[in-house]
Structure formats: C-alpha cells, structure tokens
C-alpha cells in the first residue's frame, strides 16, 4: 500500500501515537477484559494490528513489539530478523545485503531513533531473543498482559547480577 513512507519518516509523530495508544489501552483494557469475551478481544486486536501496523510498519506480527526502541521501524522487516542490527553486510548505498533495492531497515532505524524524543536512544538497549511462539499473536495484548516481557530463565539470570 502506498503512503506509509510519509509516516515512517516522521518517527516523532509515530512515537507520539504509540505512547498515546499505549496509555489509552492500559486505561481501557481492564474494562474491555471484563465486558468482552476473551477470544473476541484477541481477534479484534490481531485484526486491527494487521491492518494498522501492517500498513504503517509492514508489521510481521512477531507478537513482541519493540518498534519504539527501534526508531519506529519494524526490525522484523530485516531479512535476517535481527533484533540488534544492523549486520555487517550493509551496502555502500545504505541498502540491504539481501534485498539490494531495499534500504537497510536498521540504518533507517538508527537514523530515526536519533530524531525521536521520548524513546530516542532506546535503540542502544540489548534486545533479548524473539519468542517465536508468539508469532501471529497480538503484540498489544502481549504487552498489556506482560507476556512480551517474559524472557528465558537463563537470559534473565545475567541481569540479576
């Protein structure tokens, strides 16, 4: 779908929308949870994420959204699925090693992160491995339920030091 580049190049606007949506959902979610059947809520979330984030970010539905920590640029568009990119294969014109006509999403992510206010600098955080079991589930629901923050036992062990 055309048009999303305009948004993608305005990461400050997008991070504002993200922060607003997060606050609104956190407020509304306890109510939604009470009145709506669970399966239905999930279907609505998945569908609306597929449509809205699909359009804006080419979201791959990984279920653990880290967009706000990656310059509002979806890292799952990297063919190598890096969560801590970019790799060493970036071409001299800043394009992807794998898809020569595509700008490297991680080069874009770092550039956009530098423009961001609220979450700017978060790109320097070490992102844990992806939980592949969450593929195709709703990242918003996983966030609201705290599921996306769960890490393998061994991985968290080192942070306790």
């Amino acid at each position: 779908m055309p048009g999303s580049e305009w948004f993608k190049n305005r990461p400050r606007l997008l991070e504002g929308v993200y922060a607003g949506s997060k606050a609104a959902l956190q407020l509304l979610y306890p109510l939604l949870k009470r009145v709506l059947p669970a399966g239905f809520t999930e279907r609505v979330f998945v569908w609306s994420e597929e449509v809205s984030k699909g359009y804006l970010f080419n979201c791959q539905m990984c279920g653990q959204c880290i967009l706000h920590s990656t310059g509002m640029t979806c890292p799952m568009n990297c063919p190598k699925n890096l969560r801590n990119g970019p790799c060493g294969g970036v071409r001299q014109n800043g394009h992807c090693e794998v898809i020569p006509e595509m700008p490297c999403v991680w080069v874009q992510a770092w550039r956009r992160d530098a423009q961001m206010g609220r979450y700017g600098g978060e790109i320097q955080l070490l992102q844990p491995p992806v939980n592949r079991a969450l593929q195709n589930s709703s990242a918003w629901l996983n966030l609201l339920e705290g599921i996306d923050a769960q890490q393998p036992t061994g991985w968290s062990a080192i942070d306790l030091e």
Partner: peptide, 22 residues
C-alpha cells in the same frame, strides 16, 4: 536467523558464567 550475533554472544556468556543453558 533464530538468534542474532548479540543473542549468540550473550548466550555463550550465560553458559560460561552462569553455568546454565538459556
């Protein structure tokens, strides 16, 4: 590409220093 290079590094470090698998 289940892992990226940083996941691999940290995992090897965890195995060495914590003596556990992931």
């Amino acid at each position: 590409f289940d892992f990226d290079a940083l996941h691999l590094l940290r995992t090897a470090q965890i195995m060495r220093d914590q003596g556990v698998l992931l």
